[in-house]
Design a protein around this nucleic acid. Structure first.
Length: 578
DNA sequence: CCGAAAAGCGCG
DNA sequence: AAAGCGCGCTTTTCGG
């Protein structure tokens, strides 16, 4: 491998240079890296500007407006392994902007490799390639940013003739190839199952991003306008009656204190806490108005306004980060479609494909089930197999009553979640609505009654501590082999990470199963443990459920529930409420 | 005045 | 012994 300064970056702009490129391409190499430079992040909105190919020592840079045909030929004919850094991003631009179909068959991805090897670090190309980047190479990036600022260039307008731009583009490709050669041996040796799962998931979710999800634009506009009006009225009312704006928490707090309201909770920096819990506990009309204002502005700005700004002909194309969380969970942004409020108001904006229905299928209490699995508690396992309500059962056992009250069930449920989140008695008490002493007593009794639970928690801690001492990193692995890395001072959080990460593995495998069963084109959105689909009305819902369920891999069956066919996503909320 | 941090809240 | 987990987005707050 050459020193990075001696690597060759060739900008191709003649037929002779294309011939030279193909001669280079025919040489053997481990990975052919590819990359694109674009005008922005949206394939629907932003232009494809450059396409680059490279290996560890050489890169070729093509202008997309002149030489896209060459790129197409490469993707059609190249038979070796391909690698990209977050390759789905480039694949989508090549598809949407260039009408080029890139096969996923020989695809590899350095971002996936990096996350699997170390899920807690940055997976940006520059961070991963830092060891290859000499100060001189780093200056390239600085020079590019400096020139862009000085000239007022954006990623869409920076001239092709600016050699720093093309050099930077080519270097990214070389970095990708180097990172792939460095990471792949360990990935292949130790993480093959989870890596292959992630590649599949990247493909499936990339398809979802391109397809997008339809929204009802007139509905969004109407609701957004109503919300703006309403919020203006509430704000006016607050100003008239109390002389404060409802959005300014500290002003509101000062006003409340002057009205004789007793505040006690503060934020870590010593300001008055004005969060939902605090305000809900106050009888003051200003508190009610502030809560109302907050909820409605949130719905307006984070959802309807974003939908109206981000849609492409009535279709939202969210960005799905298949490795958004360190645990292996996904994250969805622009817009944040995994955080749509539960009621029907925002969900009613979502439409199925024409002549179809929406269908939502989710796992039933997957975290509590996996908790029972890891705890290997025979009684709890039996409860799940026999279909009893687990929270009623734990309440019955720990309170030692025949029929637990609703409140007792709530305490038991709170305790299960406190344990699997790593909460202490204080937090558990707050969530369950009891004192920390009562919470502590219940937690202790719970652990005594179900000794597998503390045994499991202790063993996660022990394993992580041992590895921290022996290997310098405290981690555990999910059954699929995904590493969960804990921070030194927060090893207790690995209990939750293991459960959350295992649930992510299960969900991702379900996406692959659905795709293999022919539902690939029906999938619209992944929502942690729920999938939103658009399906024809003659769909066999039970078959979809069965495809997702896993009744055999764990001590507890992981079962799914479906919404039924919906005209709009919000109809599910209505069905539950009504 | 600008940018970063904090606070708050939406989901699983 | 004690420790609520993981995200994205908007607005306010505050330091430079």
């Amino acid at each position: 491998m050459l020193p990075i300064e001696e690597t060759q970056i060739n900008v191709v702009d003649s037929h002779e240079e294309v011939e030279e490129f193909f001669r280079w391409l025919s040489q053997s190499r481990q990975f052919l890296a590819f990359d694109t430079e674009t005008a922005g992040l949206s394939p629907q909105r932003d232009a494809l500007r450059l396409v680059q190919f490279g290996d560890v020592d050489t890169a070729y840079v093509f202008r997309a407006d002149r030489w896209l045909g060459v790129a197409e030929e490469v993707f059609q004919k190249y038979i070796g392994l391909l690698v990209g850094q977050n390759s789905g991003f480039d694949v989508r631009f090549l598809k949407v902007q260039g009408n080029i179909d890139v096969s996923w068959a020989n695809m590899h991805d350095t971002r996936i490799m990096a996350h699997i090897l170390n899920p807690n670090r940055s997976t940006s190309l520059k961070a991963l390639g830092a060891q290859f980047l000499t100060p001189q190479a780093k200056r390239l990036q600085g020079a590019l940013q400096g020139a862009m600022a000085a000239q007022g260039w954006s990623w869409g307008t920076i001239p092709f003739s600016f050699s720093t731009y093309t050099a930077y583009a080519g270097l990214d490709c070389i970095l990708t190839a180097r990172i792939a050669e460095k990471f792949y041996p360990e990935v292949e040796a130790n993480y093959k199952d989870v890596y292959e799962l992630e590649l599949q998931v990247a493909r499936i979710c990339s398809n979802m991003e391109v397809k997008g999800v339809s929204i009802d634009l007139p509905y969004c506009k109407e609701k957004y306008a109503q919300i703006l009006d309403y919020c203006a009225d509430v704000e006016f009312w607050c100003l008239e009656n109390y002389g404060v704006r409802p959005s300014e928490a500290q002003q509101v707090a000062t006003k409340l204190v002057s009205e004789g309201v007793d505040l006690s909770k503060t934020t870590p920096t010593g300001m008055w806490a004005m969060d939902k819990d605090v305000l809900e506990g106050l009888e003051h009309p200003l508190a009610k108005a502030v809560l109302e204002h907050r909820q409605k502005t949130k719905i307006g700005s984070s959802y309807f306004q974003n939908f109206l700004q981000l849609h492409d002909n009535g279709v939202l194309h969210p960005s799905i980060n298949t490795l958004g969380a360190r645990t292996g969970r996904m994250a969805v942004n622009t817009p944040a479609l995994q955080t749509i409020p539960r009621g029907s108001i925002v969900r009613d904006a979502f439409l199925p494909r024409s002549d179809e229905h929406l269908l939502s299928v989710d796992y039933a209490g997957i975290e509590a089930r996996l908790f029972a699995h890891f705890a290997a508690e025979e009684e709890l396992i039996r409860v799940f197999h026999e279909g009893f309500d687990p929270h009623s059962y734990t309440a019955q056992q720990v309170f030692n009553v025949e029929t637990p009250t609703k409140e007792q069930r709530q305490v038991a449920k709170g305790c299960t979640f406190a344990l699997l989140f790593g909460a202490g008695p204080e937090k558990m008490g707050i969530t369950a609505g009891i004192t920390s002493e009562e919470a502590k007593f219940f937690m202790d009794s719970y652990k005594e009654r179900f000794p597998g639970v503390p045994r499991f928690m202790k063993s996660v801690d022990n394993v992580a501590k041992q590895r921290l001492a022996a290997e310098g990193t405290g981690y555990v692995k999910t059954p699929l082999g995904r590493r969960q890395v804990g921070e030194k001072e927060k090893l207790y959080a690995l209990v939750n990470a293991l459960i959350q990460g295992t649930a992510a593995d299960v969900f991702k495998q379900a996406l692959v199963n659905l795709d293999n069963a022919g539902y690939g084109s029906n999938m619209l959105l992944p929502l942690h443990d729920e999938i939103l689909l658009s399906v024809p009305s003659d769909i066999d819902i039970q078959e979809v459920i069965t495809t997702m369920e896993d009744r055999t891999s764990f001590r507890v069956p992981l079962i799914c529930e479906a919404s039924g066919l919906l005209e709009r996503w919000g109809d599910k909320a209505r069905a539950v409420v009504g």
